[in-house]
Nucleic acid binder design. Structure first.
Lengths: 345, 345
DNA sequence: TTGTATGCGTTATCAT
DNA sequence: ATGATAACGCATACAA
């Protein structure tokens, strides 16, 4: 009924060129063996003529591995995963690697089974993107990754730390530090901070921030820190708590996450405090909030180089020994943190 | 040096179970042939014991095709592509299909070469996601897709229309109509509209909107329509133009795109007109603007079921004959279009 | 119902 | 430098 799919095979190219399949293979696909110039030209011409495309699957069976990179992400609609995936895809293409993408749909419990699915394809590399260090079923995941490596694959985690396999971690310490230095440079001298209860994600940011401040001789006492949930309502609650402490208002409030910062701003406004006139605010993460709507506030923040992290994940798989370029977080100063001089005018 | 990768093969399972590879193959991978219960159990146990995973590449060489779906998208950081890709990935997983993702990086000119790359893997299906009907190199793309189908693959375009292959189009007419009906239901009776110069994307939305209005006996004359660029500054310009026409202000302004709506709102405010007190505004697209920041406006809009479109793309590849469930756009009424009664209170 | 043998498209080893 | 030939892991037509 259906016509048999017509695709040119290596054999067809060889016949067309009047050479053996072996020779054709040598010129078309990478081989260290040399081929006479005349034959090479004939094969190339023949391949072009019959529209030959190498069959990756056949190559994979004989080579034992697939020139592919398995990519496990969470929900792509989350800009975090989208940015990392974008970096992975671009870098993979540069290395002529196919990207097999899978999504946990936000359920880290599915990671293991997804990796298992991926393994059927014998990809050479595996990039696991994690937002937080979710460790349900850690043992399962560990053994799955281990098995992958036993089979000759190389895996890397991008995002939160894991001691299971090599990891590409966000430069959160550097980001916090750079932000602090930038804010001090704008003239700010007194600070408060709002952290989330999710330890791993804010610890380094805060440590870096403190380090940056201390370089200018400024301290951030624990009494100036509120801890709350990693969300906008969390920011509201924490801000309320800080205000309730009734100390002097700091010049700037550093929220460990953009969403928290937005909540804090909302609560400040509810208390008839203007941002940035009365208090300045900075977030962290650059989740692309507060910048799309010019009629609203624009939030200062730190942008984590997520695309670079994805690309680095690929590079460190492909060439584990190559020295990695450092990840540079980008401090983005917007409307919520004006230069202090301007305020005093 | 490196230990040879150890992976269990079908042969190993067969030996372990004391059966022939053929029998093992029949029970482990889909075959219509029946196998005695005892053997089946032995094979299953053996496979479990040695940790067998079928080698997809080997299966692909003998079967002639790869159980995969090639996915070509633009920049994943664009929520449009992210949502469609998410739908594709989920549905593909349901059909036990691998997803090979590629990104044009926003350059539609790369589509052809990406598809060519994909073809090397002999995927069964191909989903091409397009935001607009970019037709540079249309002929090239056409022949590439044609070649893919000649080889036995099935392709579909998701997004803007194309007559090249089956397409999954956004329900823009229905969305415009549903929005108009919802707004009339809120009590609005006079309207203006701002369209973009990019014809294909707004034509159906406006047609649907007009149809919805006319069901209530309301007309939208051409004099109440401004045309501009598909962007926020475009919205500003168009709003300025509408205001300059100096007619009576309509009760509601329908912008064909959220970004345009935001520009329009900005321009209204600049003219000391309050939204929604003086004029209501609705966008279209739900690009997730104006909803993340609760301190700002929240824009009414229509949400195109992009995930469903992606899933439908997969389904119509896998089973072209199955009747497709209709795509339902979702009208989202937020702060910029309050019930008219409330305003009159 | 089960096993044997052959072939899928490609690469690599071995002669030539 | 080139060509025959044997793998690679698996599925299936055919034989038993």
């Amino acid at each position: 009924m259906t016509a048999a799919p017509q695709r040119a095979r290596l054999k067809d190219v060889a016949r067309e060129a009047g050479v053996s399949p072996a020779t054709a293979s040598r010129v078309l696909n990478g081989s260290d063996r040399a081929v006479a110039e005349e034959f090479r030209a004939r094969v190339l011409a023949a391949a072009e003529k019959v529209g030959y495309l190498p069959n990756l699957a056949a190559q994979a069976t004989v080579r034992g591995h697939y020139p592919a990179i398995g990519l496990v992400v969470g929900d792509l609609r989350d800009i975090f995963f989208a940015r990392v995936a974008h970096g992975v895809i671009l870098e993979a293409t540069r290395h002529d690697l196919v990207v097999n993408i899978q999504s946990t749909e936000g359920d880290p419990g599915r990671e293991q089974s997804l990796i298992r699915d991926l393994r059927r394809q014998r990809p050479q590399y595996l990039v696991l993107v994690r937002k937080r260090d979710e460790d349900r079923a850690r043992t399962q995941l560990l053994s799955e990754l281990h098995q992958f490596e036993v089979e000759g694959g190389r895996a890397v985690v991008v995002g939160e730390s894991t001691d299971l396999v090599p990891a590409v971690r966000p430069p959160d310490f550097d980001g916090g530090k750079a932000l602090a230095i930038a804010l001090v440079g704008l003239g700010y001298r007194s600070f408060a901070a709002i952290c989330s209860t999710d330890k791993t994600s804010w610890r380094e940011r805060l440590d870096g921030f403190r380090t940056g401040l201390s370089a200018a001789g400024i301290a951030l006492p624990d009494s100036a820190i509120a801890t709350t949930e990693h969300s906008l309502p969390g920011g509201v609650a924490a801000m309320a708590e800080l205000l309730a402490r009734r100390g002097p208002l700091p010049e700037l409030i550093f929220a460990i996450e953009d969403a928290i910062a937005l909540g804090a701003i909302a609560e400040l406004r509810r208390n008839r405090l203007d941002v940035p006139r009365d208090v300045a605010v900075s977030g962290y993460g650059d989740r692309e909030l507060g910048v799309v709507d010019p009629t609203s506030i624009t939030l200062s923040t730190v942008r984590t180089p997520l695309e670079e992290m994805g690309a680095l994940g690929v590079r460190s798989c492909v060439n584990p020994l190559a020295p990695a370029a450092p990840l540079i977080p980008q401090v983005i100063l917007r409307g919520t943190t004006p230069r202090v001089r301007a305020l005093k005018d």
